[in-house]
């Protein structure tokens, strides 16, 4: 069992937690994730490691409440325990040698992007961060990004806070103005990462995307997390949990990944309703 050391609500649908898991905290690098199960009957879900505290053995996670499991997790309080917590899984984000990077985060993807931006900042990389949200209420981690970015642009889809529009708007402006980056690292909804990649393409800037397909074991055993890359005209199957989650944005077949992501759409909707009703009852 793994103890919840701290819990904080970042906005109505996004929660921050610290979980006691010293072995994971010892090893974690930016871009890696964990898999957890809330209780004995629970589903295994992946969440990115948002940071660690080696002294307390704490692993920080930031999650959006989207379905049954995240709903259940959100009902656990500091001091309580969760059943399983395994990691660090996946390959760390390659950040060595990068001098100037643009980090583009969307929604809860910003939680995944933050540790990468922090690691870049810590190694002396010049960091531009563009973070986008649907509206003001969903904004998270603005101060944290400010602290690790040389420049920060905040966007909201509806203009209810900061700049109005998509994250691709300022990105395109910067590239059009002749700015260059060694790498664009983008993390967020698939559709956003697809358009960030398309925006960068005419300029030839390398793009790293963080793929978050449905996972079970996280060790390369089930193949459920597979996605297709197009490498030199050939389709290559990769497992996001071990080969990723980071991939070259120009190679990823986003349309296929989006279709696969909807495999259990109906099931998840029903399970979430059930979990909500359960908590309403108590």
């Amino acid at each position: 069992m793994y103890k919840i050391l701290a819990k904080k609500s970042l906005n109505p649908t996004v929660t921050y937690m610290e979980i006691e898991a010293p072995l994971v905290a010892n090893k974690a690098k930016a871009g890696q994730f964990i898999i957890l199960r809330v209780d004995e009957e629970g589903e295994r879900i992946p969440l990115t490691i948002a940071g660690v505290n080696k002294e307390t053995g704490a692993v920080k996670i930031i999650f959006q409440i989207v379905g049954a499991t995240t709903e259940k997790l959100n009902h656990k309080e500091a001091g309580e325990c969760i059943q399983d917590f395994v990691g660090p899984l996946g390959t760390p984000t390659h950040i060595q040698g990068l001098k100037k990077v643009c980090v583009v985060g969307g929604g809860v993807g910003c939680a995944i992007a933050l540790p990468v931006a922090e690691a870049l900042h810590a190694q002396g990389t010049e960091v531009t961060s563009i973070i986008g949200f649907r509206n003001k209420d969903l904004l998270i981690l603005e101060d944290e990004f400010k602290a690790c970015s040389d420049r920060l642009v905040v966007m909201t889809d509806d203009g209810s806070y900061a700049r109005h529009g998509n994250v691709t708007v300022p990105l395109k402006e910067m590239l059009d103005a002749g700015e260059t980056f060694d790498m664009i690292i983008t993390i967020g909804p698939l559709i956003m990462m697809k358009f960030v990649t398309l925006t960068a393409k005419p300029f030839g800037t390398p793009v790293t995307v963080s793929m978050n397909p449905i996972m079970i074991d996280g060790t390369g055993m089930c193949g459920g997390c597979r996605l297709s890359l197009l490498q030199e005209g050939k389709r290559v199957t990769k497992f996001a949990c071990v080969d990723g989650p980071d991939f070259n944005g120009y190679e990823v077949d986003f349309d296929e990944a989006m279709a696969r992501g909807r495999t259990y759409f109906d099931f998840e909707r029903k399970a979430h309703e059930k979990a909500c009703n359960l908590f309403k009852g108590v």
Binding site: I216, M221, C222, R226, L227, T237, E256, R262, T263
Partner: peptide, 24 residues
């Protein structure tokens, strides 16, 4: 534990499983 695929078109469609995933 590493599942093999056939590398034929359509293996990434929704509803295609490795036996390991299905049984797990």
């Amino acid at each position: 534990g590493l599942p093999n695929f056939m590398n034929i078109p359509g293996e990434a469609l929704k509803g295609v499983y490795s036996a390991n995933e299905f049984l797990t």
